[in-house]
């Protein structure tokens, strides 16, 4: 078990390292650098350009600069934005907080809802509740987020006037100020993720309900709901852990479309802004953060699966 855990952590670390190398060299390979971007039309001035590169330390060989950047990133120092005045960690820090807030709220609504709906549709397979919920889920999955977002804005903020349709709070504002502006984006996100997880849970419940051990439990005289909760669900929900993890990673990695539609100051929008400003150091940092989030969440999911599944758990403890 401990060997397994260490191996996974090591692998995760290597993945992040590789990703950081790819990001760094990708940005290196782009024509131009931070200085040509910063100076804009003044870059024709060779002297100015040289001065700028000297200021930003761009003249040193790439591997040295990578070492410095990577070393800084490990201690939380992501360097300076292209304007040379703001620390990237400050800009990104607020945005990570906001993205976390959005993701957390969406998870809080979406995951329990998805599990409950998935179990209901699985148990009442092919009957009324399943048909209605499954059809709705397909709609939620297939309608693009910006369409459903726009529709919700139209209904809830323009026609009914119940909720603000756009987020006007500044990125660095405290969490409490995002309410109730955050509600509409949370609803849209939970709809989409809920549909995905629900379908997964549904098919898993159907599988397990037709398994030999569920039949055996029934023939042992176990009452229906006790059979569902004790025999079926613990097994049916195991495969859901990984789907939930992927969804969480997707939420944390910045849901670009939703953030743009609602003008939400999260990581996704910062990424878009940084790309259009050609603020390469910021793009680089965000990419690294998103990669690390994916690795961590997946690691957590695998660990959780291992803990929840006696088959995996005991394989690694027996030896």
């Amino acid at each position: 078990m401990i060997v397994m855990l260490m191996r996974r952590i090591l692998l995760g670390f290597i993945t992040v390292c590789l990703v950081s190398i790819i990001i760094f060299s990708g940005i290196e390979m782009l024509p131009g650098d931070a200085c040509t971007q910063y100076l804009g039309e003044y870059q024709a001035d060779k002297e100015l350009l040289e001065q700028c590169r000297k200021d930003l330390d761009l003249n040193r060989p790439a591997h040295e600069r990578f070492r410095e950047w990577a070393g800084g990133a490990m201690t939380g120092d992501l360097g300076m934005a292209v304007d040379g005045k703001t620390k990237i960690s400050t800009i990104v820090g607020d945005r990570v907080k906001n993205s976390l807030l959005l993701a957390f709220c969406a998870m809080l609504v979406g995951i329990p809802l998805a599990l409950i709906l998935g179990i209901i549709t699985g148990l009442w397979r092919d009957r009324m509740p399943d048909l209605v919920i499954s059809t709705l889920a397909i709609f939620a999955m297939t309608i693009p987020e910006f369409v459903s977002a726009t529709l919700l804005i139209l209904v809830f903020s323009i026609w009914l006037g119940w909720l603000p349709g756009i987020v006007l709070t500044s990125a660095s504002a405290p969490i409490s100020e995002f309410f109730p502006e955050i509600l509409l984006p949370v609803i849209v996100l939970s709809l989409v993720m809920c549909a995905h997880i629900m379908r997964m849970v549904r098919s898993s419940v159907i599988d397990v309900m037709s398994s030999d051990y569920v039949q055996m439990a029934t023939l042992k005289g176990v009452p229906y709901w006790q059979m569902v909760f004790r025999h079926a669900l613990p097994n049916a929900l195991l495969p859901a852990i990984n789907v939930v993890a992927l969804t969480i990673a997707w939420l944390l990695g910045g849901v670009v479309v939703i953030e743009v539609v609602f003008n939400y100051p999260g990581l996704g929008r910062l990424m878009i802004d940084a790309i259009s400003d050609r603020d390469l150091p910021v793009v680089q940092s965000i990419a690294l953060i998103v990669a690390s989030i994916y690795v961590c969440v997946n690691l957590a999911a695998d660990l959780l699966t291992m803990l929840a599944n006696p088959k995996l758990r005991t394989v690694y403890t027996r030896k």
Binding site: D212, Q215, R230, P234, N235, P310, K311
Partner: peptide, 17 residues
């Protein structure tokens, strides 16, 4: 009236001791 199933490996609930 009790049943002894064909494939006990699959008829015992894997998550229960």
């Amino acid at each position: 009236l009790a049943l002894i199933p064909q494939n006990s490996g699959q008829s015992l609930t894997p998550t229960m001791r």
